[in-house]
Design a binder for these strands. Structure first.
Lengths: 332, 332
DNA sequence: CTGCCAGGTGACAACGTTGTCAGGCCACAG
DNA sequence: CTGTGGCCTGACAACGTTGTCACCTGGCAG
């Protein structure tokens, strides 16, 4: 900047004025400075600028997701990126892999980096630690899972409704023995999906067979094993509800291995690419990632802009996408 | 920091020393400062610190990929993230969507932000503009597509070999009429895959039917149309090679729609989740994203660390994953 | 007792930028 | 001619931190 000022024969402050497009610089000076900037390939130092400016922003938001490479997280990040771009803001993303310690570390790191805001798909049960972090004034928005121990904005889908929709879809088609696989019951999302599943039965005066409802299924392989086991029962299920995207893959594999993929109905939770190319195409309860990302960004940038209204907890309705696997009728 | 110094009854510099774990501070002073830091919830300002320190790093690398939400890019980012973590560095990712202008803008933005390094999956044909950007000393590594107009490190797969492997796999199984779909011929990757495909034929004294080789297929839907059209020929292909992941989806759909998915062989390029759950499971030429990401990070951090050796152009061999669709024999 | 050294500490300048304010110039009204 | 006001411009301090160097203290050798 000093060099630019020297070359243009003006003071530092004038260069600053030109670079920041402030009013009140005569056209010829402006031109001289612009030329010097070009010639010397000068780039303002954002860090120094932020340091001096009062209430300056880093132009960065942090996003902690379960895994950058899984399709749900990746889609969310993409949606955030698009929204952030219009605020001239970049997205600094990191994967938690359900690591509770990692979550705390990364939040601390991001706050120290002075990100303008935080998007959090938490791995932890409770986030009391956040209270101290957020005292610095960094706003945070939760996504996919609601906050506990700290009251901030959140955007989640209606998991209760999602579970209910899946069960109703199958019950309406005559299924009475529906297996259901869920993730760890400590997770609110899994719990609500399970409740919705049960509620759909109760509404119709039915009761799910407890042996067919399995909690704590954590991986694709486990899901596959569980489905195999359930199909071995004397009175096997005629339909399966996989309460999470990776569990659906396991279920598909197991049904395929048994050769019953055209006989046992299957509904998954969370859509994924190619679900429509499976045989039969997979019926799923879909979360609209793009919309969720948009809402998250909306809340976050409102907070960054100074919104101090009470925290909002937005709930997005899932939709059921019928593709074939969920419309298989029960075996006679 | 001033407050911490006041509370601990020491000078600013001493606080700095304690925070940076420098030697030569008496234990009791260290303790007093640490306590004050805790009590006031003090966080060092990284930007200010970097400003003062000579040759300080921002602890950020920029990664420009085709689309953060596509499985190849997302996998790559994840691999980069893991490597960057061990260098206490964050990954700032953005999507190009094949936008050439966007590429230039974003690169400029990232360099101005003083990222420590740049990972680029370019959308542009040539990157002459980079020469000026890199004069600031920011190292860059290209991935998936080689640099043109600027000489920097790159990591790509052997696309020629990949195309050849796919063709050989099908030729070895007796196929003689193999359709092939490629992306824009202006892209080096597409061009090389095509050349490999042709070379495999030539090696065996064969020649691909030019009517079966289609360039410029840009989307899933287009791929589907093209396959339909080729199957309408009097002498239709007995196998299809889809030269890019999204083209494979289109091909699968078309074959499925014609009900010939168990009669016409199919080999895709680029693996994707669930490819093994399709019917028949999809045979693909796979790029090892994790390895590619690791190599990219290795080169980049070597450069950041001061490596000034001549640019390296690493080529990773693809592997062929046989799953079923590629092993269908030609119709009698 | 003096001189020296090592260890601990602080004052000050500097990093690259911008907010504040003062000053110079010119046009125009009185 | 003088005074007033508006338009440009620059000097200076400040943002939060760290590198440099000087200072102080106490211990120990001569």
């Amino acid at each position: 900047m000093r060099d630019v000022a020297a070359l243009a024969g003006v003071s530092l402050k004038t260069v600053s004025r030109v670079v920041n497009e402030e009013a009140g610089v005569s056209p010829d000076v402006r031109e001289r400075v612009t030329a010097a900037v070009q010639r010397l390939d000068y780039r303002p130092n954002l860090a120094a600028s932020n340091l001096r400016r009062t209430g300056a922003r880093s132009g960065l938001i942090g996003a902690l997701v379960q895994d950058v490479s899984n399709s749900f997280s990746a889609g969310l990040l993409r949606s955030l990126e698009d929204a952030a771009r219009s605020h001239r803001t970049g997205v600094l993303a990191a994967s938690l892999d359900e690591g509770v310690d990692r979550e705390q570390e990364l939040v601390h790191d991001l706050v120290t980096r002075r990100v303008d805001g935080l998007v959090l798909m938490p791995a932890s049960d409770r986030q009391d630690y956040l209270v101290a972090e957020l005292r610095t004034g960094t706003p945070a928005v939760f996504v996919d899972r609601p906050p506990r121990g700290v009251d901030v904005d959140s955007v989640v889908i209606d998991n209760l409704l999602g579970g209910r929709m899946a069960a109703e879809h199958l019950l309406d088609r005559g299924h009475r023995r529906i297996a259901a696989l869920f993730h760890l019951p400590t997770l609110t999302t899994a719990q609500l999906r399970r409740e919705g599943f049960t509620a759909a039965h109760t509404d119709r005066g039915l009761r799910p067979d407890p042996r067919l409802v399995v909690d704590g299924v954590a991986s694709t392989d486990e899901a596959s094993e569980v489905v195999h086991r359930l199909l071995d029962l004397d009175d096997p299920p005629t339909a399966v509800f996989a309460g999470r995207n990776i569990l659906a893959s396991g279920a598909v594999r197991a049904l395929r291995e048994r050769g019953v993929h055209h006989e046992v109905a299957l509904v998954g939770f969370d859509d994924f690419p190619l679900a429509d190319l499976l045989d039969p195409p997979l019926t799923v309860v879909r979360q609209d990632v793009t919309k969720i990302g948009r809402l998250v960004a909306e809340r976050l940038f409102a907070r960054i802009g100074g919104d101090t209204s009470p925290p909002q907890h937005l709930v997005v309705d899932p939709t059921l996408v019928s593709r074939g696997s969920g419309e298989i009728p029960p075996r006679a």
